[in-house]
Simulated scan of single mutants.
Amino acid sequence: MKYPKLRELKEAVISLFTPAYTSKFPAEPHVPFEKFRGKPVVDNDNCVGCETCANVCPPLAITNYDDVEKGVRIIKRDYGKCIFCGQCQDHCITGKGVTLSDKIFDMAVFDREKNIEYQEKELLICEHCHAVITTKEHLHFMHRKLGPRAFSSILNLNLLNQKLKLAEGQDTDVEIRDGLKRKDMFNIICPNCLRQVLVKYLIKGA
């Protein structure tokens, strides 16, 4: 029979009289350590729906669906899949859209649907091909970030006109029909449609 060594007996005696290292949660409240990474909390006012967090999420806990008919982007966050890696927080373009809470960590539920949250953002859709450009909040954030340089883009100028009403509706709201024309570059169109206009009328001189 192999007897325990003195070192092992010493550790056993110390462990017997040493308080438990783990907390007694949920019987007693648990206080997380500093910089603890808990549930990602979304600030809807600072989230612009740009899809960055969905693109960097390793377990694909964040997914997006663009409902073109309703004109909204539906963002689904499944915290049951979240591994609390913090990639969404680190790559958020606004720096405030999502933060990992150091207080919310108990998310054990019997119904997994309770760990799913949905968020909607209004889309900016091409008036010609109906392709999704981005969310309106995303583009407005770019305006604030870039300042006057943002309006070197025709799309941004058109949005600025809609916001500030610099021109009358009858001067700008022209229906797109019979293919893209030069005038259509002043409508809300996606980069691909704008390229068609520029190549056809400005570069080739058609």
Rank of each mutant, 00 (worst) to 15 (best):
P4K: 09
P4E: 10
E8A: 12
K10E: 14
K10V: 13
S15Q: 07
F17A: 10
P19R: 10
Y21C: 06
Y21I: 14
S23R: 11
K24I: 10
F25A: 15
F25Y: 15
A27V: 15
E28S: 12
P29N: 10
V31C: 03
R37M: 13
V41K: 13
D43E: 14
D43W: 10
D43V: 11
D45Y: 11
G49N: 12
G49Y: 09
E51N: 14
V56E: 05
P58T: 05
P58S: 06
P58D: 06
P59C: 05
T63M: 07
T63R: 14
Y65E: 09
Y65L: 06
Y65V: 04
D67S: 09
V68S: 00
E69H: 01
E69P: 00
E69F: 03
K70G: 12
I74L: 10
K76T: 14
Y79M: 03
G80L: 01
I83A: 01
F84P: 01
C85W: 05
Q87Y: 09
C88Y: 04
Q89R: 04
D90K: 14
D90H: 05
C92M: 08
I93H: 05
K96L: 13
G97A: 09
G97C: 09
V98N: 06
T99D: 04
L100E: 06
L100S: 06
S101K: 06
S101G: 08
K103Y: 03
M107N: 04
V109F: 02
V109S: 01
F110H: 05
D111I: 02
D111Q: 02
R112H: 02
E113D: 12
N115Y: 01
I116R: 03
E117K: 09
Y118I: 08
Q119D: 11
Q119N: 09
K121M: 07
E122S: 09
C126Q: 02
E127I: 00
C129T: 00
A131E: 03
V132M: 00
M142Y: 13
M142R: 14
K145P: 00
L146W: 07
L146R: 10
G147T: 02
P148F: 00
R149V: 03
S152R: 09
S153C: 07
L155I: 10
L159D: 06
L159H: 03
N161S: 11
Q162R: 14
L164R: 08
K165A: 10
G169S: 10
Q170E: 08
D171G: 00
D171I: 01
D171C: 01
D171A: 05
T172K: 02
D173I: 04
V174C: 01
I176T: 05
R177S: 15
G179Q: 08
L180R: 12
R182S: 14
D184G: 09
M185Q: 15
I188Y: 05
I189H: 04
I189W: 03
C190T: 04
N192H: 01
Q196D: 13
V197H: 10
V197K: 11
V199Y: 12
V199A: 13
K200N: 14
Y201E: 11
L202I: 15
L202R: 12
I203S: 12
I203M: 14
